[in-house]
Write a protein that binds this DNA or RNA. Sequence first.
RNA 1: GCCGAUGUAGCUCAAUUGGCAGAGCAACGGAUUUGUAAUCCGUAGGUUUGGGGUUCGAUUCCCCACAUCGGCUCCA
Length: 638
Amino acid sequence: MFEVTLPDGTGRRFDQPVTVGEVAAAIGPGLAKAAIAGRVDGRMVDLGTRIDRDCQVAIITMQSPEGLEIIRHSTSHLMAQAVKELFPGAQVTIGPAVENGFYYDFDYERPFTTDDLGAIEEKMRQISDRNETIGRREMARDEALALFKGMGEHYKGEIIGAIDAGQTLSLYSQGDFVDLCRGPHVPSTGYLKAFKLLSVAGAYWRGNAANKQLQRIYGTAWADAKSLKSYLHMLEESEKRDHRRLGRELDLFSIQEAAGGGLVFWHPMGSRVRQAIEGYWKETHIAAGYEFLYTPHMANLELWRTSGHLDFYHDSMFNPMHVDEQEYQIRPMNCPFHILVYQSKMHSHRDFPIRWAELGTVYRYELSGALHGLFRVRGFTQDDAHIFCREEQIEDEITAILDLTLAMLGTFGFKEFDIFLSTRPEKSVGSTEIWDQATGALVNAIKKHHLDFVEDKGGGAFYGPKIDVKITDCLGRKWQCSTIQLDFNLPERFDITYIGEDGGKHRPIMIHRALMGSLERFFGILVEHYAGRFPLWLAPVQAVVLTITDASRPWAVEVRDRLRAAGLRAEADLRNEKIGYKIREHTLKKVPWLLIVGDREQEQRAVSPRDASGKDLGLQSLDSLVEKLVLHARERRT
RNA sequence: GCCGAUGUAGCUCAAUUGGCAGAGCAACGGAUUUGUAAUCCGUAGGUUUGGGGUUCGAUUCCCCACAUCGGCUCCA
């Protein structure tokens, strides 16, 4: 006699050993049907796991996060089984569940093609229909090693070889397919119905470029067909939002083969958005007590030796160029330049805090294969700033930077933040006292904002602790943009000082910070976040006046000029086209306000606006509309 | 950088075993004067990413370069 305690605290008594599945059945037939695995005393186990003593049991169903993970993991096995049936020469390696799906890496004599993917998926469906039992058994490490080596599965052999001798391993089998796996898995292949293979790509064995490249097949799997469908729909949606596609369709920017990869050309429409972003950036920074610097794009390489960047970031810096017997470096960072400005004269403790900002364009060498639209480029503009202050000013400065960060990101429509605090790594510069004090100041600043944070212990840079902020876009994707870093290293390396109250020289604290990070990347994120439908204050064209016939031209031009005089980015479409054609065209360009003018409007000095929702708002006076648009733009409503 | 795929008009895509490089949209010209997501007719548009090779002949086959796309972290 033993008792099983369920998550709600109630207990069930059993006289004989039972499986987890039987516990589910004892609770109810509905649960038994939905069950795919269980949790016994906190450990995830199969439904077939036997229980013969007092314990805590929770049933894991398909819809739960753990359940989905199990389905995905099991589907990766299903795929591996299908691959082995179709391509017996393929060797299996690893196949975990990942966010929204799974992958499995194979070693095979030739690359898999998209046709192969279709065949593999078809085979997976057959195996699912066969509803093969997925069985678990345990085996001594040496025995398992011999088994997999005997099957010619050398990667599995290598994995097992790395496990201590004498350990017992678990194996899962379904039909003829056997895999080393910790589990748990669904009871049979028939549980796996809602899946789709998505892509095939290279991946190194154990993630190391020195190792052989394997072929990774990615797929997605869900609890039911409906969830799968909505996920695939979401993928289509994000494809439509792809900033590379919208960038071309809306004529925002381009990347030109003739110029080289990773170098961004901002077209007039994209530049208008950037101007709006920069204008806002400038305004907020002035209000927050910053001064602005403009510094060169290149300088003597010696500067990068002094800063230490050459040592640490050599691989991601462009090669230097020769100028008059000297070597010059295109800048990968702005900080040494700001330090040079600091060094250009003596500083007193009374000068602090010094807050210097610059939209500084930097150039970094990225591997050609890593380039990706605006997200990974070789030349980009940081909204950079450096703050020089005294130790006791750190907390106030960090607090003010966080204020600025959250306010700015909020204006762009991001309201959900994840904060990460990275603390002192093993190898670092600076005394324990200063690290402790600075880290404490960072924590206090975060707490003042009543924000939760995740501490990455030992994850800081060698030169100081930092705070990173991640934003969540409207598709739920997370992006790290803002970073606030303390630097105990550069002031030392450049030997910058200030004269303290005691008349002696002291070392200032330096804070690096970027809120949007890279303007290019941030712009790309905004394009996808808004799906190209920028809020009024950012829209490259805020309003277009559309004429019904040529007779309304004079009034249309007057309306446009009136909008322009009010500071709005307005155009007039005077073409001899049907109104439906013009509306369609500007709607596709995602212009937030379309103002239709015909005889009626002209007579009454009015317009018939249509907002971003596509609704005809009826005849309105021009005055009241201008007032409304100006207000919306000024308040930067999202 | 590595693996794979791709590269044809501004865009999206065709082109038989290697045999005259096409269409829609956009552009331009004309007609039409139109009331809330595509009016009609016409014209022009190409070193098929670049370079080299095989061939009587290459968008097509081969080699090199470049670019783009997917991936290369997520504990058997």
